[in-house]
Amino acid sequence: MSVTQILFWFLSFLAIGGAVMVVASRSPVNSILFLIITFFAISGHYILLNAQFLAIVNIIVYAGAIMVLFLFVVMLMNLNAETEPPHKSKYLMYAGVITGSSLLLLVVAALRKSESIQQMTQLKDGDVGLLKNLGRALFTDYVFPFEISSVLFLSAMIGAVVISKRDKEVHS
């Protein structure tokens, strides 16, 4: 077993374990922390998959900014294990777990016959994931999506403003 394979398995278990704990842990803060662990593991995978830039972005944007935002909101609301609403009724929980896992089974079963799933992915090799290449593509081929995603941010910004701003007059 090569190092990459060991790394792959380690990161995979880390990611899955983190993800399970996100769902399972009672305290929202813990959930967030476990989610961050999962994100780190995924970033590790990115590096393995030769997507170095994405790995960094994932850590900075997701694990960093976004998760901090979550944490901030949770702290703001002072949510903890006690304030956490109890789990849904047992049946609903079982139903959720069963349906969720059957989805996994179904997708895997659906792909079982596929030939392409035996294809290999190249690990730890190549330079497509470097900032230089991505940057060039982003600002040439992908300039339109890049520009237009600004609309997305603008609307998110306006949205945040609209929702957070207190109205001057009271409406019924």
């Binding site: 609903l92 139903a95 349906t99 969720g100 989805l103 179904l106 997708v107 079963a109 659906a110």
Partner: peptide
Amino acid sequence: GTYVLLMVVGILVLFIIQF
């Protein structure tokens, strides 16, 4: 929760139909 559950069941059904 119920909505999502029903949606997921729907997804399962569609997968079964398709595959």
